[in-house]
Simulated assay, not measured.
Amino acid sequence: MRGRPQLEIEREKVYKTKKNPNGTFIARIIQVPKEENMLDFMLEIKNLKKKELSYRSLLVRTENWYYSFRLARGDLKWVSLHTVAVWDRLGHKLVEVAAPTGKENYRISDEHCSVYREK
């Protein structure tokens, strides 16, 4: 069947997961439905040795329709051995976090994230 896929996300769902090469940190992007037509993308970073979350924060809130949904899904990349960055599909770095401490090294402003709501 051709056309746009159905995007009915009714419960929290892991979109993407990534492990550190040495297996100590895990980072994932979670899709969380909010209101009837809104969707949150959250970044979680977990230390597998200590079995606890070091970071959990909202990346972007977007409308749950095909184009904004597709743009808001990020790519997880390891900037260094202990640093995680999330890039969007337009090539903007959304956030960069030191995984052990959960400290943000860089974060894009909410005004820049509004591009998802407008497109």
Rank of each mutant, 00 (worst) to 15 (best):
I9L: 12
I9E: 08
R11E: 11
K13H: 03
V14E: 10
Y15D: 09
K16L: 11
T17R: 14
K18Q: 10
K19L: 15
P21T: 11
G23E: 04
F25N: 07
F25M: 07
A27M: 05
R28H: 10
R28K: 14
I30C: 00
E35A: 15
E36H: 09
N37I: 02
D40F: 08
K46P: 04
N47Y: 01
K50G: 07
L53H: 06
R56Q: 10
L58D: 14
R61A: 12
T62Q: 00
N64F: 00
W65F: 07
Y67N: 09
R70M: 04
R70S: 01
A72K: 05
D75R: 15
L76F: 02
L76E: 00
L76H: 05
K77A: 12
K77H: 09
K77D: 08
V79G: 00
S80R: 15
S80E: 14
T83Q: 09
T83I: 12
V84E: 06
V84S: 13
A85M: 09
V86C: 07
W87G: 01
D88K: 03
D88G: 13
R89H: 07
L90P: 03
L90C: 05
G91L: 10
G91Q: 04
V95I: 15
E96S: 13
T101Y: 02
T101F: 03
G102F: 06
N105D: 01
N105R: 12
R107C: 01
I108N: 01
H112L: 11
C113E: 02
C113Q: 08
S114Y: 14
S114L: 15
V115F: 13
V115H: 09
Y116V: 13
Y116W: 14
